[in-house]
Amino acid sequence: MSKFIVSPSPHIHSGNSVQKSMYGVIVALLPALAVSLVFFGLGALIITLTAILSCVIFEYVIQKYLLKGEPTILDGSAILTGLLLAFNVPSNLPIWMMVVGAAVAIGIAKMTFGGLGNNPFNPALAGRVFMLISFPVHMTSWPKPEILPLTYIDAVTGATPLGIMKEGLAKGDSLTNIMTQIPSFTDMLIGKMGGSLGEISAIALLIGFVYLLWKKIITWHIPVSVIGAVAIFTAILHGANPQAYAGPVFHIFTGGLLLGAIFMATDYVTSPMSKTGMLIYGTMIGVITILIRVFGAYPEGVSFAILIMNAFTPLINKYIKPKRYGEILK
């Protein structure tokens, strides 16, 4: 008699896997990667490959030799962390800094907590913030976008629109004056402006967003609430004093907001699980981002905002419960 397999129900599975989700996100990041290769050329390529390779190697070594477990590098999470890390740095960053950043992202932010699923903070962002604080000069001088440049370290550097804004306002320039110095709206859409590798092209990031929604890898809640909160908050500020505060369009399309809202804040592990929780989390990220950008010392605040809200995620999970069946009555 043949032996049958016995297991509790259900007996079928959707075929979802961690791997599929991770590779799905990587695919969604490809348009943005293509744009950065066009505008930052060789530098973008070197930085991206370095980041991915070092993340994967660090994860493998730590899992195999420190934790003495089965390495799970093929699940794609280390590749994704590497890619996102690269997307968050200028393309002319020295290679050794990139490797240090990857070591912090994987070694400290991810593996010390027990690997994928247990990290309280987004590893790529933790690595990025570490680098921003440790190497402030290198992390805030961005190469000027050109078409397929083959220069790497010695690229001509320029400021990001957010940097121009912060500096200009600090000097006491009027907003109308500053607006003439920043790239045009179409340039911002395509990505022809200074900035970190992956954050420049709004169109490429939005294509990725649509892909993620289509593949049902993420839901709309977090990105829409982040962008919505930014739009509303900046609109209020702009309405109150158009000469001191830039409008929603400027804030949404500059800096790492779209990259953060679509790809970093939606990280499964570090974002809340219920829909209401996601909306609260997203809204708070939007608000904190603008608070930092407008009133803080740094020109850009998306990374900090997401990391701050990462810390609140367990609290949100504990107190914001999904709507339960039968709860409405009584």
Binding site: M1, K3, F4, I5, V6, S7, P8
Partner: peptide, 16 residues
């Protein structure tokens, strides 16, 4: 006589 393929816990298997 058969192969169990559920969660690796005696309590779960015994309940099944």
């Amino acid at each position: 006589t058969n192969m169990y393929n559920g969660a690796s816990s005696c309590a779960v298997a015994a309940a099944l």
